[in-house]
C-alpha cells in the first residue's frame, strides 16, 4: 500500500506516492535522483547518510520516507550557490577535510546542522556534536579545522554585513 508524501526537498515542493517501507535515503537517491547522500553502514553507525530534517541532522538510512510528510528535507545538494561553495564546503576544500571523501557528504551536513544551532562552537563542542559521523582517513583533525574555518568565515561575513 502506498501513501501520499508531500514534502520539501532542498526548498522545492514534491508530491509522491511512496511505499511504507521506503527509506528516506532510497527515496532521495532513487526517486528524487539526488545521489549526493551516500549509503555507508546502513545501520545508523557511520553518519554518512546524514541529512537535515526540519533543520536537524538525522540518518536517512533509518528514517522512513513516509514519516517526512509535511517536513523539509535538505541534502548536500542544497549547499553552495550556483557553483559557489558554502562556507563549510570551502572549509573542507581549504583545510583538506576530505581525503577519500566518502564520509564527506555526511560530515558536511552534520556540520551544517551544528552551525545553524550554534554558529560559534569551540573545538570540544565540534568534536562532541559531530560524534555521530565516522571518518577512517583524517583522524578528524582536518575535519575540525574545516569546521573552524567555516565558523571564522561566517563570522567575518556577518561582521561585514
Amino acid at each position: 500500500m502506498k501513501s501520499y508524501l508531500s514534502l520539501q526537498v532542498n526548498g522545492r515542493q514534491r508530491d509522491d506516492a511512496v511505499s511504507g517501507n521506503l527509506l528516506l535515503v532510497d527515496y532521495l537517491r532513487e526517486v528524487v535522483g539526488l545521489t549526493g547522500t551516500k549509503i555507508g553502514c546502513d545501520g545508523g553507525e557511520c553518519g554518512l547518510c546524514t541529512v537535515l530534517i526540519d533543520g536537524k541532522a538525522q540518518h536517512s538510512c533509518l528514517t522512513l520516507a513516509a514519516t517526512c510528510n509535511g517536513k523539509s528535507v535538505e541534502t548536500i545538494e542544497s549547499l553552495g550557490d550556483g557553483g559557489r561553495l558554502s562556507a563549510i564546503q570551502r572549509g573542507f576544500h581549504e583545510k583538506l577535510g576530505a581525503q577519500c571523501g566518502f564520509c564527506t557528504p555526511g560530515m558536511v551536513m552534520a556540520a551544517e546542522g551544528l552551525l545553524r544551532e550554534n554558529p560559534e562552537p569551540d573545538e570540544e563542542t565540534i568534536r562532541t556534536e559531530m560524534a555521530s559521523n565516522i571518518c577512517r582517513c583524517t583522524g578528524y583533525v582536518k575535519i575540525i579545522e574545516a569546521v573552524q574555518f567555516a565558523v571564522e568565515e561566517l563570522k567575518s561575513k556577518k561582521e561585514a554585513a
Binding site: G44, T50, Q58, H59, A110, M130, A131, S132, N133
Partner: peptide
C-alpha cells in the same frame, strides 16, 4: 545515549 544525530530523533 549514542551520538548527537541519534538523539535528535
Amino acid at each position: 545515549v549514542a551520538g548527537p544525530t541519534h538523539r535528535s530523533y
